[in-house]
């Protein structure tokens, strides 16, 4: 595969390190809040449960052998076709903005 890094252009995927699903959001749990089932379930889902789709998948890669940017790559898991690459920080900032 070749991944078109937003900063470096298309590079062999061996330059990148894979992490996984980029649609997961880290739950925000208040410090010292009593552990309830909903919190436990949210964290369980965040750390352990995956949609694991056969098809389009938004996923995190890091260009570890290049610019070291974390990227959100949209890739089809059946065909490896890449539909888009965004800088993870931009995606994360946009996500924060919508939450605020």
């Amino acid at each position: 595969m070749r991944i078109p890094c937003c900063y470096c252009g298309a590079r062999g995927h061996e330059e990148f390190t894979y992490l996984g699903d980029a649609t997961l959001a880290r739950p925000s749990t208040e410090i010292g809040a009593p552990a309830d089932d909903a919190t436990a379930a949210a964290w369980h889902d965040y750390v352990y449960v995956r949609d694991n789709p056969s098809g389009r998948h938004r996923e995190l890669w890091q260009h570890t052998g290049g610019c070291r940017a974390w990227l959100v790559v949209t890739r089809d898991t059946r065909t490896h076709e890449i539909h888009g690459v965004e800088a993870a920080r931009d995606v994360a900032l946009a996500r924060e903005a919508t939450h605020e």
Binding site: D21, Y48, V49, R50, N52, S54, T77
Partner: peptide, 18 residues
């Protein structure tokens, strides 16, 4: 490798990646 797809038919999400 198709466990997630089949389980999804029953509304389940699994701790699995393919």
């Amino acid at each position: 490798g198709n466990s997630s797809r089949v389980a999804a038919m029953a509304g389940l999400r699994l701790p699995i990646e393919s």
